[in-house]
Simulated scan of single mutants.
Amino acid sequence: MRALNPKRKRRKLGPKANPAPGNPLHAYLHAYTDWALAAGYSEHTMATRRAAVLRFIVWCDERSITRPVELTRPMLERYQRHLHQHRKSNGAPLSVMAQLGLLNAITAWCRWLVRQNHLLHNPAADLELPKKPKALPKTILTVQQVEAILNLSDVTTLLGLRNRAIMEVFYSSGIRRMELIGLKLYDLDIERGTLMVRMGKGRKDRFIPVGARACAWVDKYLVQVRPEIVTGYDDQTLFLDDFGQPMTVRFLGDLIRRHVEAGGITTPGACHVFRHAMATHMLENGADIRFIQAMLGHANLETTQIYTQVSMTKLKEIHSATHPARLERLKGVGKANPQDETNDAAAALLEALAQEDDEQE
């Protein structure tokens, strides 16, 4: 295990504020953003889309494109090839999911331009987008690895106790990092062991259970830590940063990444490894797939079925019982049960979590 590094690495920010300031396309982007927020789109969604369109406007400005009527399908195809050929600072290409996110934002913006009569037709309507990859999540932790990471927190310190409580909630509930930083004091009922996730992905609420161990750590945090670090106006946010303020996505991501890396795990989307682990470990122990769906907040059961591969433990058990090249037959193991949905899902891949991994990059 590596020791925790208290120094946070500063990540490079995206494009500088208002790049290509003289390009008139900025006015259309601002109008689109205002319309979308008024129409009920979340601020997080629009911040992501705005950054994607802003990147596109910079590319357009370099080619003297300044009017919506100049946005044509061949030009968008050129931009698509540009994204495909782009290399990040480390030399790696943009992932397919990253390319899709950038292109989907452009498609939505063009659709709005048509709706507002700035364009006669949507040049992105027939754009042939790359297919979503079918891949496993980059990292699935074992129970022992999760426990080792949790135990890295120095719970004799205020911030160490807070960090342990945060990771326990992540592992117990499987919520996303945006959902965790939005939790309020009244969202967690320690006595009942329940958690209300308000305005999660898709602007949907959900009511889920939280384990007794996670509740116990949060109770310690509320009694011993939060009163000591809270400063200024208290808006009832559950977890606070080192300065007593509500956490940002970047602060939380860096915090969990340091703990995961100290446990010997290097992976993008550190907060999501607990989400992966929660779903996989509960499936290993026989949890119904519909319960996992409710915990993760998936609107479609098929999304959960795709990524809920029966764990390698179960697959190895069936393999040992049925494969002819074995040392000895295991009695009573691996028999087919048509009523068992877990066995039916045994060959399904963990695609949905892999896609969420790519969204974190």
Rank of each mutant, 00 (worst) to 15 (best):
N5Y: 04
R8Q: 12
K16L: 12
A17M: 11
P21M: 05
H26C: 03
Y28F: 11
Y32V: 00
L37W: 06
S42Y: 02
H44F: 06
A52C: 13
V53M: 06
V53W: 01
R55D: 15
V58Q: 05
E62F: 04
R63P: 01
S64H: 15
P68S: 02
R73M: 10
L76K: 00
H82Q: 06
H86W: 11
S89P: 05
G91T: 10
P93H: 04
A98S: 15
L103R: 02
T107E: 13
T107N: 11
T107D: 14
A108P: 01
N117P: 04
P123C: 08
A125P: 01
D126C: 14
L127I: 03
E128S: 13
E128A: 15
L129R: 08
L129Q: 14
K131N: 11
K138A: 09
Q144G: 09
Q145H: 04
Q145Y: 08
L150V: 08
D154V: 07
M167L: 09
Y171M: 05
Y171P: 01
S172F: 05
R176F: 06
R177F: 05
L188G: 01
D189R: 12
E191G: 07
T194Y: 06
M196W: 06
M199D: 11
R206V: 03
A216M: 14
W217K: 00
W217H: 07
I229F: 01
D235V: 10
Q236D: 14
Q236I: 02
T237Q: 10
F239A: 03
D241I: 03
Q245R: 14
V249G: 06
R250H: 07
L255M: 15
G263I: 03
T267N: 01
G269P: 02
F274W: 10
F274Y: 09
N285K: 14
A287Y: 08
D288G: 09
D288T: 05
E302H: 09
T303K: 02
I306A: 04
T308P: 01
T313W: 10
H319L: 10
T322N: 15
H323K: 01
E328H: 11
K335H: 14
N337R: 12
Q339E: 14
D340R: 10
D344E: 13
L349D: 10
D357S: 06
Q360K: 07
Q360C: 04
E361V: 08
E361T: 06
